[in-house]
Design a protein around this nucleic acid. Structure first.
Length: 427
RNA sequence: GGAGGGGUUCCCGAGUGGCCAAAGGGAGCAGACUGUAAAUCUGCCGGCUCAGCCUACGGAGGUUCAAAUCCCCCCCCCUCCA
C-alpha cells in the first residue's frame, strides 16, 4: 500500500526534504506526529493555505497524527521570510481573535476528535519564555553568520531587517523542539519559504536532543501564468464562506487555467490519482468538465456537499455548460445532469421597494450591490458596455430602475461582464 | 551620536514651482477573439451632485497668485562612520 509520502510525491506536494529516504521509511513503518504552522494574520485563511491543510488531511487519512499549530505567539513578531517589508504589527487582541477563528476553520478539514489531531497555539509556551534563559539555552545554538546567509533573510538584508523579526527563526525552531519533546512530533511541513526556519528546528533538535526530526516543504503554488495563489487584499479567495461565498469560491476554481487543472486536482481534491491523470487527454469542452469537477470537489471540501451542490447549480444555470460526462471522474459526486432552477447560491442583496422606486439609477444599483466599488466605476462599466440587467446590456448609466425590471418573483438579475452574476431581490 | 540618501496614488517607480489626479510598468476591471482557459489586441483604472468641484505625493506649519516640487520643525527607513 502507498504511504503518505508516496501520495505526497505523486500529487506534487514535495519541494524539498531533509531526507527523502528516511521520511518515506518513517511514514511507512509507524504512526507519527507531524506539524504545520499557520499564521493568524487574518480572521480567515485563504486558498494559499490550502496546500498545507490538504497535506495535514492526507497525513490524518493515512493514520498519522497531524498538529495544526496556530502561531499566536510568533504572530506577535511577524515572519520576515520572503517578505520585502516588515509586516504590520497586530495587537494581542487581534491575534487572539484570529487564532480562535482559524481553530474553528481548521476543524472543517481535520478530525480533532479523540486525539486524532491536535490544535495548538504557540502563544501558550512562547509568551511564557524568559529572555535570559531563552538566550542561554536556545540562542547559543544559533550562529548569526549562518542566519545571515539564510535565503529567507537575504532579501531583507538589502532592505533592512528588524531585530524582532530576526528572532523569528529561533522561535519557530523552538516550536519544533517543544512539539518534539512534548508531543513526539518528528516532522514539520510548510511552504518552501519556511525552509530556513524549519531546518533551524531540525538542527536545534539534533543539537539539544541528539535526535533526528525531519522537515519537508511544499512548492510555492503559482498558476501557470505566474500568479500567486490567494493574494492579499482585494483579490483574495478566502476559505470563510462569509468572506468568499461558496459560489464565488466555486467560480474561482472553475476559472483555473488549462495547464493547471491536473496539478490542482491532485493538490486540492482527494480524487484518485488515476482518474486525475485522465485530464491529460481532455481538451476544450471536456477539459471544462474537469474544471467543473475541480471546482465542485474543492468547494465540497471547504464548504460541504450541500454548498457545493448549490454553487454547481447556480453556476450551471448562469453559464449553461455541458454536464460532466458519466465516465469522467467516477469518484466525484458532482451532479451529472442539469439541476432545477436554483439561484440561491448566486450573491444577492435585498432592497426595499421604496429604494428602487425613489428613482435609483442603473449606476447606483451596480454600486449598491458591491459589484462596483464606486459610482464612477459603475458608470465607466456601463459606458464600456459591461453591465447587464436581465441579460440586456445597459446603455445609459442614469436610466431609472423601476418595477418593470423585476421578474414575477421580484428579482432583478445583474451581470458585470461575462462572469459576475448578482441578484437584487426587491422586497 | 555624526555624515549622506530616501519616504509619491493597490505595488514598483518617474516627477524637483504652474502644462500634475501626477510618466512608465505591474496588478485589477471591461470589450474583441474563445471553451466561464491562456496568449494577443483595445479601452478604463482617486471620489463626487462629473465640461465643474473635492481629496491626495510620510506628519504639522510657512513662503508664493500658484507647492509632490522651496523653507522650518517632527516621525520613519537606508548607507557609511562611531
Amino acid at each position: 500500500m502507498k504511504n503518505v509520502y508516496d501520495v505526497f510525491m505523486e500529487r506534487g506536494f514535495v519541494e524539498q526534504t531533509t531526507d527523502d529516504e528516511a521520511i518515506s521509511q518513517l511514514l511507512d513503518r509507524q504512526e507519527i506526529t507531524c506539524y504545520i504552522g499557520f499564521d493568524p494574520t487574518a480572521t480567515s485563511l485563504h486558498i494559499g493555505s490550502l496546500v498545507p491543510i490538504m497535506a495535514l488531511a492526507h497525513i490524518q487519512r493515512h493514520g498519522h497524527r497531524p498538529i495544526a499549530l496556530i502561531g499566536g505567539g510568533t504572530g506577535l513578531i511577524g515572519d520576515p521570510s520572503g517578505k520585502t517589508e516588515m509586516r504590520q504589527v497586530l495587537t494581542r487582541e487581534q491575534i487572539d481573535y484570529n487564532a480562535q477563528c482559524l481553530q474553528e476553520q481548521l476543524s472543517r478539514y481535520l478530525d480533532f476528535g479523540e486525539g486524532r489531531a491536535l490544535l495548538l497555539n504557540n502563544a501558550d509556551w512562547l509568551t511564557k519564555l524568559n529572555y535570559i534563559e531563552f538566550l542561554r539555552d536556545i540562542g547559543r545554538h544559533f550562529s548569526v553568520n549562518k542566519m545571515l546567509a539564510a535565503e529567507s533573510y537575504k532579501v531583507r538584508l538589502e532592505k533592512g531587517l528588524n531585530f524582532i523579526e530576526f528572532n523569528y527563526m529561533l522561535l519557530q525552531a523552538y516550536d519544533f523542539l517543544y512539539l518534539f519533546k512534548n508531543h513526539d512530533c518528528v516532522m514539520q511541513m510548510g511552504g518552501n519559504d519556511q525552509w530556513g526556519n524549519m531546518l533551524a528546528g531540525s538542527d536545534l533538535i539534533r543539537r539539544m536532543e541528539g535526535k533526528t526530526a525531519h522537515s519537508m516543504t511544499f512548492p510555492l503554488i503559482t498558476t501557470s501564468t505566474g500568479h500567486k495563489m490567494g493574494k492579499t487584499e482585494k483579490g483574495t479567495v478566502w476559505l470563510d464562506a462569509r468572506l468568499t461565498s461558496p459560489y464565488e469560491y466555486y467560480q474561482h476554481w472553475i476559472n483555473t487555467e488549462d495547464e493547471d487543472v491536473e496539478r490542482f486536482l491532485a493538490l486540492f481534491t482527494f480524487l484518485p490519482i488515476d482518474e486525475i491523470r485522465q485530464v491529460r487527454a481532455l481538451t476544450d469542452v471536456s477539459l471544462n468538465m474537469a474544471k467543473a469537477v475541480l471546482a465542485f470537489e474543492a468547494t465540497r471540501i471547504t464548504h460541504g456537499e450541500e454548498a457545493a451542490a448549490g454553487a454547481w447549480q447556480a453556476s450551471s444555470r448562469a453559464f449553461q455548460p455541458k454536464p460532466v460526462a458519466e465516465g469522467l471522474f467516477p469518484s466525484s459526486t458532482i451532479p451529472r445532469r442539469g439541476g432545477a432552477e436554483d439561484l440561491s447560491a448566486i450573491p444577492s442583496l435585498e432592497l426595499p421597494l421604496e429604494t428602487i422606486q425613489s428613482g435609483m439609477t442603473t449606476n447606483e444599483l451596480f454600486f449598491r450591490t458591491g459589484l462596483c466599488a464606486s459610482k464612477g466605476e459603475a458608470r465607466r462599466l456601463i459606458e464600456q458596455g459591461g453591465a447587464y440587467i436581465n441579460d440586456v446590456q445597459v446603455v445609459s448609466f442614469d436610466e431609472k430602475i423601476d418595477m418593470h425590471h423585476t421578474d414575477a418573483l421580484g428579482v432583478i438579475r445583474l451581470r458585470k461582464g461575462k462572469k459576475k452574476h448578482f441578484l437584487v431581490i426587491v422586497k
